[in-house]
């Protein structure tokens, strides 16, 4: 019995070996291959444009809602509408969704806008900087991006008129939807087949 078990285990190990890669000719795969190039700090900085909720990555600069209104009219309104109402289906509504109600699952037509759906204010800066305007992404300065963020937050009642938005004040803005977001719980604490 015990002997049979040993034989079975040996066979199992042999089977694993047979499945393993055989093209290292006996050499173990190294921890590192040493392939690639070490970038300079400047090379990293040129690409390192993301902004985190704590404000990490926000550049110097500032802007006000009033400055943003002018830029919005010139560069954004043609797609997102004069008043941020959007143009379905490609260009989303930005502002003016219902406030204080979060039952979005009851009707897909409830507008999801920055003020009632976006959980982090920093996302606004990050997204505008990397992707907008659609036909000239990356063309806005840091000041213009702060100003546009300030304008949209002001339109949603989250920043007073005349306020200056910068690397310190932007991450401090608490977004109304923040507490409504929950991590994926479809598997529950124990996994399994439940439909959630």
């Amino acid at each position: 019995m015990r002997r049979a078990l040993v034989i079975a285990m040996t066979l199992a190990v042999a089977a694993c070996r047979a499945e393993a890669r055989d093209d290292y000719l006996g050499d173990k795969e190294p921890q590192r291959f040493g392939i690639g190039h070490t970038p300079t700090p400047a090379e990293v900085a040129a690409l390192d444009i993301d902004v985190s909720p704590n404000g990490a990555g926000l550049p110097a600069g500032s802007g006000t809602p009033e400055q943003g209104a002018t830029i919005y009219a010139a560069k954004c309104a043609s797609c997102h509408g004069k008043n941020g109402e959007g143009m379905a289906p490609a260009y989303p509504q930005l502002v003016g969704g219902p406030k204080g109600v979060f039952n979005f699952a009851s009707d897909y037509k409830i507008p999801r806008t920055i003020g009632n759906y976006w959980p982090y204010s920093t996302t606004l800066f990050d997204y505008i900087r990397r992707a907008m305007p659609l036909t000239a992404p990356g063309s806005l300065t840091a000041d213009q991006t702060y100003a546009l963020s300030a304008y949209l937050l002001n339109r949603e009642g989250l920043l007073p008129a005349g306020a200056t938005l910068d690397a310190r004040s932007l991450p401090a803005i608490q977004m109304p939807a923040r507490s409504h977001f929950v991590p994926d719980d479809r598997r529950g604490s124990t996994g399994g087949p439940k439909v959630r």
Partner: peptide, 17 residues
């Protein structure tokens, strides 16, 4: 956040699904 999140009955929004 703004996209690829799942509103659920009640007032929750599931993220990283």
């Amino acid at each position: 956040t703004s996209k690829y999140t799942d509103p659920l009955p009640g007032d929750k929004i599931r993220m990283f699904s």
